[in-house]
Design a protein around this nucleic acid. Structure first.
Length: 486
RNA sequence: GCCCCCAUCGUCUAGCGGCCUAGGACAUCAGCCUUUCAAGCUGAAGAUCAGGGGUCCGAAUCCCCUUGGGGGCACCA
């Protein structure tokens, strides 16, 4: 019994190209994908491009790219609803002929003033069913005007619709709170309600996982399935992802589009892991899960009902974990495009891969995102550092003794033959003792000279990677600067 | 205004009647490690389980009310 139903598991992700996919959209795609893969079913991609006015150029490509980036592969599609118009027309006509729908000639202006008045009277804005029961005479008169009518669904006036949601349970809507919604627009495109259920049926979708914002339109969909004598799919509404202000995710929340996270240097697997935990959990402690583990353990029973607020701090932490888990080779490969793009033009291209690799071995555990890498590593690549005098003088030493310490260190280092971290450490530790300086103080001073900053990777490794020539040159530059402070 | 949904630390969450004097993670703070930063380790603080009624021997867990939050109410999806 189980295996029989497993073979017919068909999920779909059905975005509309009216914008770029945001975290909520992607989370929905992800859960659909998890569910399909968990059950060995199919994952279908369908583009719901029925709103020509709001269509955003290039959005489809961004959607596909985002899914590819995350590794959410699909088995069918993408189907485009704009290419299936005749199908919707046929169904709409059928509904019309069977008396389950009707032509409506009301102008947008009339509908608008109607709604305004309803709102003013604190009534729920609903279509007043003006055209639902037109006489034959009225109909012919309106047809003669040349107005292109829309097709509206004839919602039952009484009774109620129940359905079972896999996550929210039994849901009931009274028919008198619904109105006669539009099925086919006057531009001959179907509305979401029509196109969505027609395609879900025709594509044999078994489970509809979508955001909770759709919960209140589900009775309409159920009514449509009934009118067409079709078996509705199983519905599972997913809790919303909200912005920090607890409102629906939108542009004003800053980075919400998934491609921005790609640009900021988040890893697909970290993104997936993080998003999976927004509304779903495996147990009371496990946080880090691979894609494979997520597929294996995903279950609707463990999806919660409460909206989640997107918490960027945790995403950053998780991305850092994933970054550190990468092999050095993988990390270099991932970070290279960021370095190439962000490092100043003065840095010679192409970047030397061996050198980059040595540098990044010191950066890897310090980066939370790939976008931070160029900034963390820049001093390894620049010829001249922009020193901030304050960083030298902030220390306990005055400019004179600082310059002396650097001079002595520089002289000593000039004679070093084997330039590696261990050798450098031996020499400089000894020197610190000789100079009667604390290691923190002495190494800190040298760090500023070598890197131009107070926070950097370990000094000796940094110097080893940088090489003798560059280090000595930086000592000179630091001394020059210090001499102006004397 | 009407309809629907939801309600555990700041945030993500565990909890599906007794294991809870409520567990984990992020963030925060402190200590350790240490040449700085990061990472790591240890610890602290942080939720009278929104409030009030029930049910029950026993409730964060079940029921009702209140409050709060969210979503929907287009020829948008």
């Amino acid at each position: 019994m189980q295996s029989e139903s497993e073979t017919s598991v068909r999920l779909r992700f059905a975005p509309s190209p009216t914008g770029y996919p945001h975290l909520g959209n992607i989370r929905t795609a992800l859960f659909n994908w998890f569910f399909a893969r968990h059950h060995g079913g199919k994952f279908i991609l369908r583009i719901e491009d029925t709103d020509i006015a709001r269509k955003v150029e290039g959005a489809v490509e961004v959607i596909l790219d985002s899914l590819r980036w995350l590794g959410l592969d699909w088995d069918e599609g993408p189907y485009f609803q704009s290419q299936r118009l005749p199908i919707y027309h046929e169904i709409a006509r059928k509904l019309l002929e069977e008396g389950r729908a009707y032509l409506c000639y009301c102008s947008p202006e009339r509908l608008d003033t109607m709604r305004q008045e309803q709102t003013k009277r604190k009534q729920p804005p609903k279509y007043d069913r003006h055209c639902r029961d037109l006489t034959q005479q009225e109909r012919t008169r309106l047809e003669a005007t040349g107005i292109t009518p829309v097709i509206r669904f004839k919602t039952p006036l009484e009774g109620e619709t129940n359905f079972h949601d896999l996550i929210y349970g039994q849901i009931t809507f009274k028919h008198d709170t619904l109105d006669d919604f539009v099925l086919l627009k006057s531009d001959s495109y179907p509305t979401y309600h029509l196109a969505n259920i027609v395609d879900d049926h025709l594509m044999s979708i078994s489970h509809v996982l979508r955001a909770e914002e759709w919960l209140s339109s589900t009775p309409r969909h159920v009514l449509l399935y009934q009118a067409l004598n079709w078996q509705p799919p199983q519905f599972a509404h997913l809790p919303m992802i909200l912005g920090p202000d607890r409102a629906k995710l939108s542009k004003r929340h800053g980075a919400t589009n998934i491609n921005e996270y790609q640009k900021q240097g988040y890893l697909p697997d970290a993104m997936i892991n993080f998003l999976a935990l927004l509304g779903w959990s495996i147990d009371d402690r496990t946080e880090l899960l691979s894609k494979e583990e997520l597929i294996k353990h995903f279950s609707l029973e463990r999806v919660g009902k409460t909206a989640a607020i997107f918490n960027k701090d945790k995403l950053e932490w998780m991305n850092g974990v994933y970054l550190r888990k990468l092999s050095l080779g993988e990390f270099v490969q991932q970070a290279m495009p960021f370095l190439d793009r962000e490092l100043p033009e003065s840095v010679r291209r192409p970047l030397d891969e061996n050198y980059v690799s040595e540098v990044l071995s010191l950066i890897q555990e310090r980066a939370k995102t790939l976008a931070e890498v160029p900034q963390l590593a820049s001093f390894f690549f620049l010829d001249e550092l922009q020193y901030d005098t304050g960083l030298f003088l902030k220390r306990k030493m005055d400019a004179k003794s600082a310059a002396e310490a650097i001079t002595i260190a520089s002289r000593k280092l000039e004679k070093v033959a084997t330039w590696d971290a261990a050798t450098l450490e031996g020499i400089l530790r000894l020197l610190a003792t000789e100079l009667n300086l604390g290691t923190g103080e002495f190494f800190g001073l040298l760090r500023v000279a070598v890197t131009g900053r107070t926070a950097a990777p370990p000094l000796f490794q940094t110097m080893a990677v940088l090489g003798k020539v560059k280090c000595l040159k930086r000592f000179d530059m630091a001394l020059q600067l210090l001499s102006t402070c004397l």
